[in-house]
Design a protein around this nucleic acid. Structure first.
Lengths: 203, 203
DNA sequence: GTCTATAGCCAGATAGAC
DNA sequence: GTCTATCTGGCTATAGAC
């Protein structure tokens, strides 16, 4: 019972900042807007986080730490290669349907500040895909799947799962459909993406 | 011989603005930086384009018009479905290897200003994928490829070709490789992406 | 911890000379 | 068309009262 209030304002700020930063990016976001969203004033933002830069970094780390462990868990599980692909696609798409702006935010800010990647790699739970790579190489050697570099397969899995959300506005334009129909396509992808990948590599 | 000089300054500005906007985005770019890059001063930027917003829109349209026609040509060609997939992947990746920041720029700004999509659709050479959709549906009906919605196949093609460039910083971190090695992977994808897709759908 | 008020800077835009 | 100088507004950050 010793932390009923405590850091509730800090949490409010972080959540508000997350919403604003995800929509506008670091450069486009305004401290005033974040303050309004959090129901406080600008001065308090600086009281808690000192500067826009530091607030941004806190938000970015929080966002990244929501996504990275999932990847890590699935990739390092003991399950078979096909199960991993199925599980990752299903988990990831389900998660992103609830947080549609997260992937774009992360990718975007990593493109603007490539040095962030170094910092992330140094962190504890940064995803490691060695186990996955070994599994793919083993199956190729066995002749159980078609020859493919593990790196390429990994890129393909990420691309098929992540891009439909990042590229949503463009894709909706090309396909010429509304939000609801598009969401249904994403819903379907929870299972279809994995089957597409598995069809591509199975003998 | 009647336009030796003419609009050369305008072109210089557009090219400079393209470089800066692509790296920093609309919100992060500075008119001063664009002026420096173009070798002129701020006032001249406003003389030619009136405002940052108008300059940005000019750059955006230019960027989009470099990519869209390619998509259109390939998708509406008379070639077979598999040929289309091969040709698009090869063309697109070759092109983007020369302009690595273009896709990210477009996707990013469309996410920030979704209303841009409406404007683009109204333009002359906005890509149309009806022919592609019909081709896919026909082949599914014939039983020549596995059942798949044309929209899903289209999304997959786009994802596998575009995402590796947009997500490059993140992917490099995950895979733990340097730029040169990554570029080699992209080089290989010129042919491998299409084969991956074709393997996924062929009977 | 939370607020109001304001300092101080920087960026977009314009005026006006050449 | 191109420049220098300047206006004006908006934004981050801080001072200081409560």
């Amino acid at each position: 019972m010793n932390k009923v209030k405590d850091t509730t304002t800090e949490t409010d700020i972080l959540n508000a900042a997350k919403r604003i930063f995800q929509h506008k990016g670091m450069a486009g976001a305004r401290m005033q807007e974040i303050a309004d969203e959090a129901g406080i004033n600008k001065a308090l933002l600086h009281y808690y986080f000192r500067s826009k830069q530091l607030l941004f970094e806190a938000v970015f780390k929080m966002a990244f730490s929501m996504l990275a462990p999932q990847l890590n868990e699935v990739m390092n599980a003991d399950s078979s290669l096909f199960e991993k692909i199925r599980k990752f696609s299903n988990n990831y798409i389900s998660f992103v349907l609830k947080h549609p702006y997260l992937p774009n935010f992360i990718i975007q800010e990593l493109n603007r500040n490539p040095e962030f990647v170094e910092k992330l790699i140094a962190e504890d739970h940064f995803p490691n895909i060695e186990k996955f790579k070994k599994q793919v190489n083993d199956k190729v050697t066995e002749g159980t799947i078609k020859p493919i570099k593990p790196e390429q397969l990994f890129i393909n899995i990420m691309a098929l799962n992540i891009f439909p959300f990042i590229g949503a506005p463009l894709l909706k334009g090309f396909i010429n459909i509304e939000n609801q129909t598009y969401n249904q396509l994403m819903e379907d992808r929870k299972t279809e993406v994995a089957e597409f990948i598995i069809n591509a590599i199975k003998i």
